[in-house]
């Protein structure tokens, strides 16, 4: 018997920056909480296809499990938690300040240092 569908987000790495991004209703964001939560299988499959076609923006799009919450989607597996926040040994991944709002694909180099 197939597993029941659980909520998903579309995630990928940004082609130029390489960092983790999430699909929104009309683009991409670096913040999981701003991602579009997908509650139905057919919708999720369609959005993944749309994401995968944007080869000039993203690399390796896939559906990741997430929990819906009032504060937006939340990771429910430790791998996705690390992707959403950055490495645990240094405070210089996303936790150092992923910019809110849509991404324009031309971000400057993150100047943070260990």
């Amino acid at each position: 018997m197939p597993k029941p569908f659980t909520p998903k987000v579309v995630t990928a790495n940004h082609l130029l920056e390489g960092d983790v991004i999430y699909q929104t209703a009309d683009g991409w964001t670096r913040n999981l909480a701003e991602a579009e939560i997908l509650l139905e299988q057919a919708d999720a499959d369609m959005r993944l296809i749309e994401a995968s076609q944007q080869t000039d923006v993203v690399v390796g799009a896939y559906l990741a499990n997430a929990d819906a919450s009032d504060d937006g989607p939340q990771a429910n597996h430790f791998r996705e938690e690390f992707r959403a926040t950055g490495p645990s040994n240094y405070f210089h991944g996303k936790q150092a300040g992923a910019l809110p709002g849509p991404l324009n694909g031309q971000e400057s180099h993150n100047p943070s240092r260990i």
């Binding site: 082609l15 920056e17 390489g18 983790v20 080869t55 390796g60 992707r83 991944g93 996303k94």
Partner: peptide, 26 residues
């Protein structure tokens, strides 16, 4: 690759030949 002339499938073996991986965060 950046211009879109190469797909990721075409580019990936080329970048790997030059030691460039795509990891979890970057």
């Amino acid at each position: 690759r950046v211009s879109g002339a190469l797909t990721e499938d075409e580019f990936k073996p080329l970048r790997l030949m030059n030691g460039l991986y795509l990891q979890l965060h970057a």
